[in-house]
Structure formats: structure tokens, C-alpha cells
Design a protein around this nucleic acid. Structure first.
Lengths: 164, 164
DNA sequence: TTAATTTTGTCTACTAGGAAACAAATACCG
DNA sequence: CGGTATTTGTTTCCTAGTAGACAAAATTAA
């Protein structure tokens, strides 16, 4: 096990699980992290059942809603860096879920569209979105969930500008 | 550049940045993700200035507040998996920031304490926490920030049980 | 006590994601 | 027009984090 720590006499090291005061622990940033992890946990669990990767699903969903969307716009919208998006799109193309097309009017860019297989997959998975949403907000009343959504939108400034 | 996509005629692919309707994009999960990314961005920016890694800082902060805390408790509290915590602690010990000690009464576990160097580092960095917190909540009124905190705590169930 | 189970931490892959350097195409500016 | 700057996507390398198997110690059951 390769434990190099010293073995020593006790020392009132809190035996139980109790935690003392807080500082970062009570910060908004930490709470957001915990909330996001919990929410993602639900999402991930369902996507595992469906044998798909979470990231793929968000891309499929956005491309479905916006056929021909440029790859960079997907990237900005979903807050995924271009490098990562590039990899994902390559894999999804290889899986036959997505089609890339370089438009004549701007040959740097790439337009994305779903293949029929992609359409089928996202359609199947999308039926489970409400379930995930419900699980995420299950401890809140409807009014509270609405207020939480409003505060998050305000906090992030998402109302004003779409892309960063 | 190795572009294998077909080059073809236009096709009303939305040239602008505009996005259509929403589905996952308006979900609570996505909003939480965006909010968390923004918050983490502030945290990360400051930690970069201070030349420390964000993960380390959260551990230092928690150990400072709870000297002798067991590694697994840190892990549960910060929602970091044990494997990752194991690596972080090893590195932080190598950096001389943290001391590990195996208590006699449970020789599986490891108690963590800060070294003087660790104390010094977290003390310096902690002075910047309020700044980060302020930046995270800068678009909200004080009342809204308080309400957001309340809703996140309720949503995650953090009030009841510390662990899990 | 002995045997099975659980807890605790570690190790070895593997995945997701980010940063920086790059190339190609386009936009801007003189 | 010609040259510079910007945008867009890709590639390579690196870090953070996860999953799963494992070992050792402690706990529970028989």
C-alpha cells in the first residue's frame, strides 16, 4: 500500500464525520459546484442507461434544433471549447450521427446537420429529458424552481447576449 | 487541415449567430452548468495569479478549518472521488503543504494537517476569497444572492446530511 | 475465535476537457 | 490591389477527474 505517513499516537483528530465551520464550503461557487454535480449525476445516469455520452447528447440536441448550425456556434452556445468540439464532432461523424458540410460562402467553417441515425437517437433520448429535469428539481416547489432558473439566468447574464 | 466534409452549395444554413428554440439549453441542468463554469472561471483566474491549483486550495481550506480531518471526509465533503483525492494529497505532501498521519485507532485511515508552509499559503490565498465571491454574485442584489444560496442548498439537500 | 463483509486508501487505466501552436480562409486597411 | 489581422477549425500535449480492481485494516456475523 506504500503508506509513507508516520504512525503515531492519537491526537484528538475528530473521529466522527462532523465538520467545523465553513469558508469556501459555504461559498456560492461551492454550492453551484455541488448543485451542478448532482444535476449532472442524474443526466449521466440516464445517458448511461441509454449507452450514450452526455456531451454528445447536448450537441445532438442543439443541432436538431438548429440544422446547419456552425460548429463554432455550437461550441459557444454549449460553452465547450473549440478543441473539444472538434474531437466530439469527428467521433460523432464517424458514428454516423452527424454530417459536416463546408459552405461555399465561408470555407473555414463547418455546418452541422443530423443524419437520420442522429435524429433517431436524439429523439429516443429526448423523451427522458423531463424525467431528468424533474429529478434535478425534485426538492423544490414549482415556484422555487422557477425562481432558481431566473436567478441563474440573471447571474450568468444569459438573457442579454447568447454567446459569451 | 484534413477536412473530409463535402463542399457543397449553400442551403439556408443560418449565417448569423442566432439560435432557435431551446430544450436542453433551457434546462436547469444546463443553467447550473453555465453558472458553475462562470463561477469557476473567476476562481481559476485568481488561483492562476497566485500560482496554485484550484483543487489544492479547496483542500487546504477545508483542512485548515478541520485539522486532523480524515482524507475520506475531505473527499466526501468536497465531492472529490477518493482516487483523485489520493493523488492530490500525495502531491501536496510532496510540496510540503500537508502532513499525513495514520492514527493508531484506525490504521486504514489518514489524518491530514497543514504544515506551516500550507498554513501560509492558504492564509495568503484566502484573502482573495471575498473578491471571488463578489465577482460571482455581482449581477445579483444581496437579497437575490441570499435566495440563490438558499435554493441551491435546498436543491442539493446539503442542509440535512453533510456526507453523501 | 474464525470467517465474511465493509471501510479506507491506493493504483492503473481511461475519458473529458483545456491551452497553445498551427493552417487555411476571410475580413480589414493602407 | 497587397499586406496585416482576425476568425475558424484542427492538432498535440497536458491536467483533472472517473471507474474498477486491489490490499489492508476494521467490523460484523457465525
Amino acid at each position: 500500500m506504500n503508506r509513507s505517513a508516520s504512525i503515531d499516537t492519537p491526537d484528538q483528530g475528530l473521529g466522527g464525520e462532523g465538520i467545523g465551520k465553513e469558508s469556501l464550503k459555504g461559498s456560492l461557487g461551492f454550492l453551484l459546484r455541488v448543485a451542478q454535480l448532482r444535476s449532472f449525476g442524474h443526466f449521466f445516469a440516464v445517458m448511461s442507461e441509454e449507452n450514450v455520452r452526455p456531451g454528445e447528447v447536448t450537441v445532438l440536441d442543439l443541432v436538431r434544433e438548429n440544422p446547419g448550425i456552425r460548429q463554432g456556434v455550437v461550441s459557444k452556445t454549449l460553452k465547450i471549447k473549440r478543441a473539444q468540439m472538434s474531437k466530439m464532432v469527428r467521433e460523432m461523424e464517424a458514428e454516423g450521427l452527424i454530417a459536416r458540410r463546408v459552405p461555399r460562402e465561408d470555407r473555414r467553417s463547418v455546418e452541422l446537420r443530423l443524419t437520420p441515425a442522429g435524429e433517431a437517437r436524439i429523439a429516443r433520448i429526448a423523451t427522458r429529458f423531463p424525467e431528468i429535469e424533474a429529478r434535478t428539481g425534485k426538492r423544490l416547489t414549482a415556484a422555487e424552481a422557477r425562481e432558481l432558473r431566473r436567478l441563474l439566468i440573471k447571474m450568468t447574464g444569459l438573457e442579454d447576449k447568447e454567446g459569451e
